[in-house]
């Protein structure tokens, strides 16, 4: 399947900024089941741009923007050819041991409610394919889908008490529950064409480690494993660690962020 992606981000600052430095995790890598045919990161202002890779194996881009700047338009466009994989990852760059992803973070720390939930769904089965699919369904069934941008800094324990959840929060619940049962799990940010156009955020789902199989993707929003409809871009302990943009600015005032993501399948 050929997926074309259009991801536009606009920052507006109420005061001109003297300097902006941003770390982007916005470039997908080739894997066995995903070939990046075309990819562009475009910026509407002068900047020095360097490419690198972080400890998790994500491709990174650093933007060094000199001020005064009161608006930044960042546009990411590209085409990725995907193939069917049953959710099992092949050919991804994996510099770190899977068991590292048992570690929790402030955003993904399971509380008693999530721990109980995980025990009820997974039982003593641990990281089997069947148990994790049960978890994936249980998480997806538990919430209605919240539209709109994920609430910054929302911890999974709080998200768990709500009726509606964004894809990010669903993935966080899955990750926290899996880790609570001793299954390494991580956050994946990327794109999916099974969502409406002009979404206010890229998509997010989870990977879980299954002994003997390796990393397997789970998308609780779709209640299934990602297949050819997903494009993986970055992984991390949680959504912040895998987030497309981390930025700092030197200057006064507030900022406003607008994001529009569209993904279309072409045949």
């Amino acid at each position: 399947m050929r997926l074309s992606i259009d991801h536009r981000t606009t920052y507006r600052f109420t005061e001109p900024q003297a300097r902006v430095v941003q770390l982007l995790r916005m470039t997908p890598r080739n894997t066995h089941d995903q070939i990046v045919a075309d990819w562009h990161i475009a910026l509407d202002c002068d900047a020095r741009i360097t490419e690198g890779q972080d400890g998790f194996g994500n491709a990174t881009t650093i933007l060094y923007i000199d001020g005064p700047v009161d608006r930044i338009d960042l546009s990411v466009t590209g085409e990725v050819v995907t193939s069917h994989s049953d959710g099992v990852l092949h050919g991804t760059l994996e510099p770190l041991p899977a068991r590292l992803f048992l570690r929790d973070t402030p955003l993904t720390r399971a509380d008693a409610a999530i721990t109980d939930f995980a025990r009820d769904v997974i039982g003593d089965e641990g990281g089997t394919v069947a148990a994790l699919h049960r978890l994936n369904h249980a998480v997806g069934d538990r919430f209605t889908l919240a539209r709109g941008r994920p609430e910054p800094g929302l911890a999974v324990a709080d998200a768990f008490t709500r009726g509606a959840a964004t894809p990010r929060d669903l993935a966080h619940v899955f990750i926290a529950a899996a880790r609570a049962r001793g299954v390494p799990a991580r956050y994946v940010s990327g794109y999916c064409d099974r969502l409406e156009d002009n979404r206010p955020a890229p998509h997010g789902w989870a990977d879980a480690w299954i002994e003997g199989l390796g990393w397997v993707g789970f998308d609780p929003m779709l209640r299934r494993s990602p297949e050819e409809h997903h494009v993986r871009v970055a992984v991390g302990f949680d959504a912040v660690g895998a987030s497309p943009v981390a930025g700092t600015r030197m200057g006064e005032g507030d900022e406003r962020l607008d994001v529009a993501v569209s993904v279309n399948a072409e045949g």
Partner: peptide, 18 residues
């Protein structure tokens, strides 16, 4: 033991490989 390192917050995966 693997967990002694991987589960330790002082092990910084962010800079692994550098």
């Amino acid at each position: 033991p693997e967990d002694l390192i991987l589960g330790n917050a002082q092990f910084r995966p962010e800079i692994a490989g550098i």
